[in-house]
Amino acid sequence: MTLFFAILFYFAAAVFVGGLAYKIVDFARTPSPLSIPTTPAPTSAPGVAFRMFREVVFFESLFKGNLWIWAMGAAFHFGLALVLFRHLRYFTEPVPFVVAVSQPFGIYAGFMMAAGLAGLWARRLLVERIRYISTVSDHLMLVLLLVIAATGLGMKFLFHTDVVGVKAFFLGLMSFDIQPLPAHPGLYIHLGAVALLLIVFPYSKLLHAPGIFFSPTRNMADDPRETRHLASWAAQLEKN
């Protein structure tokens, strides 16, 4: 199993990094021929950066749109962020002070994340219009994340695993010196699900994460009277 997971994680990491890099470059290279910020919009680059910050950190537009989705989405995303931060202890030696300090908060965050996911899924199942727009993959994505959260919390509280061994495995992966992965079904499910998440990331709706930064209605400044926007393909038209 050690070898299987070692290969799986190398593969997953390669797909994740390669696929995401490809998509990001692709987004970045595709022009916006016309100025289309959703107004009122900031008129300068620092203003746009601040708007983007509010969108990424506070989900400002979603807050305006629907408080339920916002609350559950925020619980999930902030929970996930803290949990990920807490997991840095498996990849660092010595463990940085802030990561060490975050450990107890990361536990609460795990519950927050799971609660947010459960709420979002309940919405998908119970609200008629959200049920209508949900595809099979929308449900499966939530199941996948819930499995990750549940097995993670399970290993913390119910069926412990050898976390020292897990850490040795990942430190080993990072230095291409493969160490044995503790045999533990919960751990296998947890890691398998994480690898799957990494693999589907660049080809699924998880692209919303990089996508927001390239969304023209949010990343363009409202300055079309002062600045002449011209895509290179549009400039060609003026040569005729």
């Binding site: 998509k23 692709d26 987004f27 595709t30 022009p31 916006s32 021929p33 289309i36 537009s61 979603l62 749109g65 629907n66 989705i69 989405g73 919405r123 609200v127 219009r129 959200i130 727009i133 949900s134 595809t135 929308d138 709706k205 692209l207 919303h208 996508g211 927001i212 390239f214 969304s215 023209p216 209605t217 895509a231 393909w233």
Partner: peptide
């Protein structure tokens, strides 16, 4: 290839329902 809006908007939706 011509419109970033189209490309990003096709990929980014998570069906949140807002």
């Amino acid at each position: 290839k011509k419109y970033c809006s189209f490309k990003v908007f096709m990929d980014a939706c998570v069906h949140c329902g807002a």
